[in-house]
Amino acid sequence: MGIIFSIISGKGGVGKTTTAANLAIGTAMQGKKTVVVDFDIGQRNLDMILGLENRVVYDITHVMDGDVRLRQALIPFKKNENLYFLAASQTKDKTVLSKEKVEKVLSELKKEFEYIFIDAPAGIESGFEHAVYFADAVIVVVNPEVSSIRDSDRAIGIVDAKSKKSQEGKRVAKYLIINRINPDLVQKGEMLSSEDILDILEIDLLGKVPEDQIIIEASNTGHPVILNEKSEAGRAFERISRRLCGEEVPFVDIESVKHSGLLKSIKKMFQ
Protein backbone atom coordinates (compact mmCIF):
# COMPACT_ATOMS: atom_id res chain seq x y z
CA MET A 1 0.00 0.00 0.00
CA GLY A 2 1.28 3.41 -0.97
CA ILE A 3 1.65 6.51 1.18
CA ILE A 4 -0.28 9.65 0.30
CA PHE A 5 1.59 12.94 0.68
CA SER A 6 -0.48 16.08 0.22
CA ILE A 7 1.54 19.13 -0.68
CA ILE A 8 -0.15 22.24 0.65
CA SER A 9 0.42 25.93 1.27
CA GLY A 10 -1.58 28.74 2.81
CA LYS A 11 -1.33 31.11 -0.11
CA GLY A 12 -0.61 30.52 -3.77
CA GLY A 13 2.61 31.19 -5.60
CA VAL A 14 5.02 29.78 -3.03
CA GLY A 15 6.29 26.97 -5.24
CA LYS A 16 3.88 24.20 -4.32
CA THR A 17 3.52 22.75 -7.80
CA THR A 18 7.26 22.98 -8.40
CA THR A 19 7.82 21.13 -5.12
CA ALA A 20 5.29 18.42 -6.02
CA ALA A 21 6.91 17.87 -9.42
CA ASN A 22 10.46 17.74 -8.10
CA LEU A 23 9.74 15.50 -5.10
CA ALA A 24 7.81 13.07 -7.29
CA ILE A 25 10.68 12.87 -9.77
CA GLY A 26 13.04 12.57 -6.79
CA THR A 27 11.34 9.53 -5.25
CA ALA A 28 11.02 7.98 -8.72
CA MET A 29 14.78 8.47 -9.14
CA GLN A 30 15.21 6.57 -5.86
CA GLY A 31 13.46 3.65 -7.53
CA LYS A 32 10.04 4.12 -5.95
CA LYS A 33 6.93 3.68 -8.03
CA THR A 34 5.46 7.15 -7.84
CA VAL A 35 2.44 9.06 -9.08
CA VAL A 36 1.84 12.78 -8.83
CA VAL A 37 -1.73 14.03 -8.99
CA ASP A 38 -2.82 17.56 -9.83
CA PHE A 39 -5.74 18.32 -7.52
CA ASP A 40 -6.09 21.94 -8.52
CA ILE A 41 -9.25 21.40 -10.54
CA GLY A 42 -9.81 24.26 -12.95
CA GLN A 43 -6.24 25.48 -12.71
CA ARG A 44 -4.14 22.82 -14.33
CA ASN A 45 -0.44 23.65 -13.92
CA LEU A 46 1.53 20.58 -13.02
CA ASP A 47 1.42 19.32 -16.62
CA MET A 48 3.39 22.40 -17.74
CA ILE A 49 5.96 22.09 -14.95
CA LEU A 50 6.53 18.42 -15.86
CA GLY A 51 6.64 19.18 -19.59
CA LEU A 52 3.66 16.88 -20.21
CA GLU A 53 1.05 19.41 -21.33
CA ASN A 54 0.78 17.88 -24.80
CA ARG A 55 0.20 14.40 -23.44
CA VAL A 56 -2.96 15.07 -21.45
CA VAL A 57 -6.00 13.38 -22.98
CA TYR A 58 -7.97 12.36 -19.92
CA ASP A 59 -7.85 13.92 -16.47
CA ILE A 60 -8.83 12.98 -12.92
CA THR A 61 -12.45 14.05 -13.35
CA HIS A 62 -12.86 11.60 -16.26
CA VAL A 63 -11.61 8.84 -13.96
CA MET A 64 -13.84 9.93 -11.09
CA ASP A 65 -16.89 10.02 -13.34
CA GLY A 66 -16.11 6.58 -14.69
CA ASP A 67 -15.64 7.81 -18.28
CA VAL A 68 -12.24 6.12 -18.52
CA ARG A 69 -10.22 3.68 -16.51
CA LEU A 70 -7.41 4.96 -14.29
CA ARG A 71 -4.81 3.31 -16.52
CA GLN A 72 -5.98 5.33 -19.52
CA ALA A 73 -5.58 8.63 -17.69
CA LEU A 74 -2.15 7.96 -16.18
CA ILE A 75 0.57 9.68 -18.21
CA PRO A 76 4.07 8.21 -18.12
CA PHE A 77 6.92 10.65 -17.41
CA LYS A 78 9.34 10.21 -20.25
CA LYS A 79 12.44 11.01 -18.23
CA ASN A 80 11.84 8.37 -15.54
CA GLU A 81 9.91 5.15 -15.97
CA ASN A 82 8.88 4.96 -12.28
CA LEU A 83 6.83 8.14 -12.45
CA TYR A 84 3.28 8.68 -13.67
CA PHE A 85 1.15 11.80 -13.71
CA LEU A 86 -2.60 12.32 -13.35
CA ALA A 87 -3.80 15.69 -14.64
CA ALA A 88 -6.40 18.05 -13.21
CA SER A 89 -9.35 19.14 -15.29
CA GLN A 90 -8.91 22.52 -16.88
CA THR A 91 -12.55 23.09 -17.76
CA LYS A 92 -14.47 21.93 -14.69
CA ASP A 93 -14.41 23.59 -11.29
CA LYS A 94 -13.70 22.34 -7.79
CA THR A 95 -17.33 21.45 -7.07
CA VAL A 96 -16.98 18.26 -9.16
CA LEU A 97 -14.96 16.66 -6.37
CA SER A 98 -16.74 14.54 -3.79
CA LYS A 99 -15.28 12.60 -0.91
CA GLU A 100 -16.48 9.25 -2.27
CA LYS A 101 -15.07 9.82 -5.76
CA VAL A 102 -11.75 11.06 -4.40
CA GLU A 103 -11.47 8.08 -2.08
CA LYS A 104 -12.11 5.64 -4.91
CA VAL A 105 -9.38 7.08 -7.13
CA LEU A 106 -6.89 7.36 -4.29
CA SER A 107 -7.44 3.82 -3.08
CA GLU A 108 -6.83 2.56 -6.61
CA LEU A 109 -3.63 4.61 -6.79
CA LYS A 110 -2.53 3.25 -3.40
CA LYS A 111 -2.64 -0.27 -4.78
CA GLU A 112 -0.49 0.60 -7.79
CA PHE A 113 2.04 3.05 -6.38
CA GLU A 114 4.38 3.33 -3.40
CA TYR A 115 4.40 7.14 -3.30
CA ILE A 116 1.39 9.29 -4.14
CA PHE A 117 1.91 13.06 -4.22
CA ILE A 118 -1.13 15.30 -4.31
CA ASP A 119 -0.59 18.85 -5.51
CA ALA A 120 -3.32 20.56 -3.49
CA PRO A 121 -4.99 23.82 -4.47
CA ALA A 122 -3.73 26.83 -2.54
CA GLY A 123 -5.61 28.20 0.42
CA ILE A 124 -8.41 26.60 2.31
CA GLU A 125 -11.31 26.36 -0.10
CA SER A 126 -13.33 23.18 -0.70
CA GLY A 127 -10.79 21.61 -3.07
CA PHE A 128 -8.20 21.91 -0.34
CA GLU A 129 -10.20 19.80 2.08
CA HIS A 130 -10.55 17.01 -0.49
CA ALA A 131 -6.84 17.13 -1.18
CA VAL A 132 -5.89 16.69 2.48
CA TYR A 133 -8.74 14.47 3.71
CA PHE A 134 -7.09 11.15 2.84
CA ALA A 135 -3.48 12.26 3.40
CA ASP A 136 -1.11 10.08 5.40
CA ALA A 137 1.27 13.01 5.65
CA VAL A 138 1.13 16.65 4.73
CA ILE A 139 4.02 18.64 3.33
CA VAL A 140 3.63 22.37 3.92
CA VAL A 141 5.50 24.69 1.56
CA VAL A 142 6.29 28.20 2.82
CA ASN A 143 8.39 31.13 1.70
CA PRO A 144 10.33 33.09 4.36
CA GLU A 145 7.79 35.87 4.22
CA VAL A 146 5.05 36.94 6.65
CA SER A 147 1.88 36.33 4.63
CA SER A 148 3.00 32.89 3.48
CA ILE A 149 3.85 31.83 7.04
CA ARG A 150 0.68 33.19 8.59
CA ASP A 151 -1.57 31.57 5.98
CA SER A 152 0.23 28.26 6.27
CA ASP A 153 -0.48 28.16 10.01
CA ARG A 154 -4.16 28.47 9.19
CA ALA A 155 -3.92 25.68 6.60
CA ILE A 156 -2.17 23.45 9.13
CA GLY A 157 -5.03 24.13 11.55
CA ILE A 158 -7.52 22.95 8.94
CA VAL A 159 -5.56 19.77 8.32
CA ASP A 160 -5.67 19.10 12.06
CA ALA A 161 -9.41 19.66 12.16
CA LYS A 162 -10.58 18.13 8.91
CA SER A 163 -8.40 15.26 7.76
CA LYS A 164 -9.68 11.70 8.10
CA LYS A 165 -6.78 10.64 10.30
CA SER A 166 -7.33 13.56 12.69
CA GLN A 167 -11.02 12.79 12.89
CA GLU A 168 -10.19 9.19 13.76
CA GLY A 169 -8.00 10.49 16.57
CA LYS A 170 -4.77 9.62 14.77
CA ARG A 171 -1.97 12.00 14.05
CA VAL A 172 -1.34 13.27 10.53
CA ALA A 173 2.38 13.75 10.04
CA LYS A 174 3.16 17.33 9.00
CA TYR A 175 6.44 18.47 7.52
CA LEU A 176 7.73 21.84 6.46
CA ILE A 177 9.65 22.81 3.34
CA ILE A 178 11.01 26.34 3.33
CA ASN A 179 11.32 27.42 -0.27
CA ARG A 180 13.08 30.42 -1.88
CA ILE A 181 15.55 31.11 0.91
CA ASN A 182 17.87 33.97 0.04
CA PRO A 183 21.05 33.36 2.08
CA ASP A 184 22.31 36.94 1.63
CA LEU A 185 19.17 38.40 3.15
CA VAL A 186 19.09 35.89 6.00
CA GLN A 187 22.68 36.81 6.86
CA LYS A 188 21.83 40.49 6.86
CA GLY A 189 18.90 39.86 9.19
CA GLU A 190 16.43 40.99 6.55
CA MET A 191 14.84 37.59 5.95
CA LEU A 192 13.38 35.16 8.49
CA SER A 193 15.77 32.28 9.12
CA SER A 194 14.55 28.70 8.98
CA GLU A 195 15.05 28.52 12.73
CA ASP A 196 12.67 31.47 13.23
CA ILE A 197 10.06 29.90 10.96
CA LEU A 198 10.21 26.55 12.76
CA ASP A 199 9.83 28.38 16.09
CA ILE A 200 6.71 30.11 14.87
CA LEU A 201 4.99 27.19 13.12
CA GLU A 202 6.09 24.42 15.50
CA ILE A 203 6.29 21.63 12.92
CA ASP A 204 9.11 19.38 11.76
CA LEU A 205 11.52 20.50 9.07
CA LEU A 206 11.72 18.38 5.93
CA GLY A 207 14.02 20.62 3.95
CA LYS A 208 15.28 24.02 2.93
CA VAL A 209 15.38 25.10 -0.69
CA PRO A 210 17.40 28.14 -1.77
CA GLU A 211 16.12 30.68 -4.23
CA ASP A 212 17.46 29.65 -7.63
CA GLN A 213 17.19 31.46 -10.95
CA ILE A 214 17.24 28.13 -12.75
CA ILE A 215 13.71 27.39 -11.45
CA ILE A 216 12.27 29.92 -13.92
CA GLU A 217 14.21 28.36 -16.76
CA ALA A 218 13.04 24.94 -15.58
CA SER A 219 9.39 25.92 -15.74
CA ASN A 220 9.92 27.68 -19.07
CA THR A 221 11.22 24.48 -20.59
CA GLY A 222 9.23 21.91 -18.61
CA HIS A 223 12.41 20.31 -17.35
CA PRO A 224 12.27 20.33 -13.49
CA VAL A 225 15.38 21.46 -11.60
CA ILE A 226 15.97 18.14 -9.86
CA LEU A 227 17.13 16.86 -13.26
CA ASN A 228 19.70 19.66 -13.42
CA GLU A 229 22.85 18.62 -11.57
CA LYS A 230 24.14 22.18 -11.30
CA SER A 231 21.04 23.61 -9.64
CA GLU A 232 21.27 24.20 -5.90
CA ALA A 233 17.49 24.04 -5.60
CA GLY A 234 17.58 20.77 -7.54
CA ARG A 235 20.06 19.30 -5.09
CA ALA A 236 17.90 20.48 -2.19
CA PHE A 237 14.86 18.71 -3.69
CA GLU A 238 16.96 15.59 -4.18
CA ARG A 239 17.97 15.58 -0.50
CA ILE A 240 14.31 15.96 0.50
CA SER A 241 13.27 13.07 -1.76
CA ARG A 242 15.89 10.86 -0.19
CA ARG A 243 14.59 11.77 3.25
CA LEU A 244 11.09 10.80 2.11
CA CYS A 245 12.51 7.42 1.07
CA GLY A 246 13.74 6.87 4.61
CA GLU A 247 17.37 7.82 4.15
CA GLU A 248 19.08 9.89 6.86
CA VAL A 249 20.27 12.92 4.96
CA PRO A 250 21.88 15.66 7.07
CA PHE A 251 20.50 19.19 6.69
CA VAL A 252 22.79 21.40 4.65
CA ASP A 253 23.36 24.92 5.91
CA ILE A 254 22.21 26.74 2.80
CA GLU A 255 21.67 29.94 4.74
CA SER A 256 25.34 30.81 5.12
CA VAL A 257 26.59 32.90 2.25
CA LYS A 258 29.47 31.53 0.27
CA HIS A 259 31.95 34.35 -0.41
CA SER A 260 33.84 32.79 -3.23
CA GLY A 261 34.53 35.60 -5.66
CA LEU A 262 37.05 38.38 -5.14
CA LEU A 263 34.41 41.05 -5.55
CA LYS A 264 32.29 39.50 -2.83
CA SER A 265 35.19 39.33 -0.39
CA ILE A 266 36.09 42.97 -1.10
CA LYS A 267 32.46 43.93 -0.57
CA LYS A 268 32.51 42.09 2.72
CA MET A 269 35.48 44.15 3.93
CA PHE A 270 33.41 47.28 3.63
CA GLN A 271 30.28 45.92 5.24
Partner: peptide
Protein backbone atom coordinates in the same frame (compact mmCIF):
# COMPACT_ATOMS: atom_id res chain seq x y z
CA UNK B 1 15.70 46.26 14.78
CA UNK B 2 16.45 44.17 11.70
CA UNK B 3 13.36 43.48 9.65
CA UNK B 4 13.54 39.70 10.11
CA UNK B 5 13.26 40.16 13.87
CA UNK B 6 10.29 42.47 13.40
CA UNK B 7 8.68 39.90 11.11
CA UNK B 8 9.13 37.24 13.77
CA UNK B 9 7.65 39.41 16.53
CA UNK B 10 4.66 40.41 14.41
CA UNK B 11 4.03 36.86 13.23
CA UNK B 12 4.11 35.49 16.76
CA UNK B 13 1.39 37.92 17.81
CA UNK B 14 -0.74 37.46 14.67
CA UNK B 15 -0.57 33.67 14.73
CA UNK B 16 -1.38 33.47 18.44
CA UNK B 17 -4.52 35.53 17.78
CA UNK B 18 -5.40 33.47 14.67
CA UNK B 19 -5.09 30.21 16.56
CA UNK B 20 -7.25 31.57 19.34
CA UNK B 21 -10.04 32.57 17.00
CA UNK B 22 -9.83 29.21 15.23
CA UNK B 23 -10.25 27.24 18.46
CA UNK B 24 -13.92 26.62 17.72
CA UNK B 25 -14.24 26.22 13.95
Amino acid sequence: KKSAQRAKDRLNVAITLDRDSNLYP
